[in-house]
């Protein structure tokens, strides 16, 4: 605001103008203060995503100096690529197992542990152990357990007169075995989240239920526990599905997508295409599809489920 305009205006207007300049000053400093965060977001989040999207329309390969615009070629190749569809279906299958089993399992175990009088801390620790170990290291342990000749699992099975499988090298079992490891790893995390949710339910609700003659067990769960766990359940669902879609470590260590791509999953395929076959632009287009799925989950969370959760 120029000085001239202020002097020429009546007093009332001057106040307004001063107010406005105060507002704009505030706005300016607000922008200024959030600038570092915005800059970092552009640098580390939005920038890379945009460049990945741009890359997916080119034929660039890691280390190459020439780059050409190829339009939708990568996506067309992807539609005709049986490996991509195998990876896509396997990922859905994996999520389809890990999500319900680890969420429902986590809730059940949390309820069981919390209703016990003694040993709560011990059980919590035991179930949480797999979460604390790095999955890469844990995968190597699983490799020894599942080894067909002298692995622990087959040795135990043979004690009971059953013959074990070659678990990780069998087309029919491999994805279930990986999903099993996924559940094992995720369950403890969900358990802890549900436990914190259970502890946050105020005692007086249960006391009130007692006084109103609500029987123990299922009705109490249905009337009080489950509705009160709504927000945490939503969080667990979203986190678990995103984590399940991100399955990578176990596949990379145990199977490398084999045998015959029957355990290939999206993230591992992206890694193989990009960093083993050096087909960087094709890997970028897989990444775009992957990001789209994650985005979809987030949108579903915000648009639909948020509204139905009882707070």
């Amino acid at each position: 605001m120029s000085v001239a305009s202020v002097t020429s205006l009546p007093v009332k207007n001057t106040v307004l103008v001063e107010n406005m300049s105060a507002v704009s000053r505030e706005q300016r400093s607000a922008w200024l203060l959030s600038l570092p965060a915005i800059a970092l977001m552009i640098l580390f989040l939005i920038g890379p995503i945009l460049s990945v999207i741009a890359l997916s329309f080119t034929n660039w390969q890691l280390g190459m100096t020439n780059i050409n615009w190829v339009g939708l070629d990568n996506y067309r190749e992807m539609i005709g690529d049986s490996t991509f569809w195998k990876a896509f279906n396997n990922t859905l299958m994996y999520v389809g197992i890990v999500l319900p089993v680890s969420v429902i399992g986590g809730l059940l175990v949390a309820l069981l542990v919390e209703t016990r009088m003694a040993g709560k801390a011990l059980y919590r620790t035991l179930f949480f152990l797999p979460v604390m170990g790095t999955l890469i290291a844990m995968s190597i342990v699983w490799e020894y357990i599942l080894q067909p000749d002298f692995g622990l699992l087959n040795m135990v099975l043979s004690k009971f007169g059953m013959s074990g499988e070659n678990w990780l090298n069998d087309k029919d079992t491999v994805i279930y075995v990986l999903a099993g490891i996924g559940v094992w790893h995720q369950l403890g995390y969900n358990l802890i989240l549900f436990t914190s949710g259970l502890l946050a339910i105020p005692c007086h609700l249960y006391e009130a239920a007692d006084m109103d003659g609500v029987p123990h067990g299922w009705s109490r769960f249905q009337l009080i526990t489950w509705p009160m766990l709504g927000p945490i359940t939503l969080f667990v669902l979203v986190i678990t599905s995103i984590k399940a879609f991100q399955v990578f470590d176990t596949v990379a260590v145990l199977t490398q997508g084999g045998p015959g791509k029957s355990s290939e999953v999206l993230l591992h395929l992206m890694y193989t295409e990009g960093f083993e076959f050096f087909r960087t632009s094709y890997a970028a287009s897989i990444t775009v599809i992957f990001l789209f799925i994650i985005l979809l989950i987030t949108v579903i969370k915000i648009r639909f489920i948020d509204k139905r959760v009882h707070y």
Partner: peptide, 13 residues
């Protein structure tokens, strides 16, 4: 060509 390593993988499968 540029798909060299991918071809190796396809043949192995």
């Amino acid at each position: 060509g540029r798909n060299s390593l991918k071809i190796t993988d396809i043949i192995a499968d």
